[in-house]
Amino acid sequence: MDWIQILSNTASSILSPATIGYALAALGLAVHFGYAGLLNMGIAGFMAIGAYGYAISILTFDLPWWLAAMIGLVAAAIFALILGVPTLRLRGDYLAIVTIAAAEVVRLLFLTTAFDDVTGSADGLSGYHASFREANPIPPGMYGFGPWVYNENQWWVRILGLLTLAIAVLVVWMLMRSPWGRVLKGIREDEDAVRALGKNAFAYKLQALVLGGVLAAAGGIVYALPSAVSPGVYVTSLTFFVWTALLLGGAATVFGPLLGSLIFWVLQTFLSNFLPALVQAGVLPFMTQIQAGTLRFILVGVALMLLVIFMPQGILGNKKELTFVK
């Protein structure tokens, strides 16, 4: 078994765009669920809109990459408004069903052959990197040390991703320490009580939905930045994986989503290298390599169940907050 390779791949995933993308999406979900109590089960839809908004703006409308990214974020904000205005009055679990359905509708719209020219239907979109890479100030070459050696384009993606994440964390952290965050947390605890105190609960929930949606879209863009946009990524499983990452780190915390995403991807990468290696080494004789690959998704499901039952506050959550959010 090649331990060096396994550990190197695992360590490399700490800085992967997937980890950063998940962290952004999970942070958005923390705003939705952890702070505002909104059961958004459609985070994959927001990520898809961000990624497609970015890719389509470049490929179809020939816009520069930064404007394309803006468009992806604005599109997610509009989606949040369209989704939120009618549905935020509904009870929590209804919101879950509406959002998961809306995310599926979004995915099917990107997938259908009816808009093949723009969306690429089942093939997705790729080849939108030119403008982004032109803006790269890093001279060509390989940089870094140990497992973290990347070329200039890979670094450019990671640097921008981390920068976005840093800004997002700062914004969320400041918001949640402000009176605005106080109102939001109040709404999570009891919406009626907050309304009785003269706060427009609906407006706050809508603002939270838009903010979280924009963060998730940013995550979608970072996730798609280095490679391609594929409709197969934005399935409900993605939503559930982001939820797992969030609950792992702690739903009502700012750094929990980061830690959760990091652990999620480090473990995923480790298992995806380690399990097949075990099979190859003959340690798991009853399993094929493909089955070993599937095993880690089973583990994600089991982990999600155990987390929710035994550690609902997550790793960074306050022990006193043993009551699950609502």
């Binding site: 059961l39 929590g92 679990d93 879950a96 499983s237 559930f240 939820w243 797992t244 609950l247 089955q291 599937t294 095993l295 998704f297 089973i298 994600v300 499901g301 089991v302 982990a303 999600l304 169940m305 155990l306 987390l307 929710v308 039952i309 609902p312 699950f324 959010v325 609502k326």
Partner: peptide, 24 residues
Amino acid sequence: RVGVVQLMIVSIGLSLALRYTFQF
């Protein structure tokens, strides 16, 4: 006495676990 939202998320975890068990 686990709350309904928690139960819902447990069912999501169960769904993932079962789904990939079938695939397994």
